[in-house]
Amino acid sequence: MSEKPRDIIKRNLFSENQVLRGILGICSSLAVTNTMKNSLVMGLGLSFVTALSSLTLSAMRNAIPHRVRMLVQTLVIAVYVIFVDLLLQAYLPDISKQLGPYVGLIITNCIIMGRAEAYAQKNPPVPSMLDGLFAGLGYTLVLMIISLIREVLGFGSIFGMNVNLIGFETWTIMIMPPAAFFIIGGLIWWLSARAAKKAALTGE
């Protein structure tokens, strides 16, 4: 049951997008999406951790006794998260401060554990790494969409650069939590409705 790389990529980015279809990794999706810069950094950080964790856990998959499986997974993920956290603190300290505890919370992010359990356990290292990487990139994609909406409407900027050319009165609620909920709710609704319509058409 070996999947072609193209299929792994397509699946993780669209049809089984971890955030919008799997409803995983929500906590951080909502918290950091008030600016696009934060979202990009968070998304790339998570993709990095997911890719490497899946790679490592897949390589170790036959050596881990069943009883301590979850513990080992958590430890491996934690090590990579510490690595990313330290990197951020050193090279992007402002962003690190803005992201706050959410970098550490990557450890409990259901996406990584989910990919480890669902894919890396049963597949060889390289496909697992691809799967993890693109699950993370699918997550990044969603974050970018949400933060695009929030930053443009809430700050009038993209990546900190002012794009508010028409003097639009910025919509403050966009930067606040409720907007995040509404936008992600709307996106999930849209994709769900599309999937339902497709299923009805193919007569499922």
Binding site: P177, F181, F182, G185, W189, A193, A196, K197
Partner: peptide
């Protein structure tokens, strides 16, 4: 169609969040 489930829960939560603001 498609609203039931997580989509709806998020929107409800958003409204609650607005109230709490």
């Amino acid at each position: 169609p498609g609203l039931k489930g997580p989509g709806l829960s998020f929107i409800i939560t958003g409204i609650m969040a607005m109230a709490f603001i």
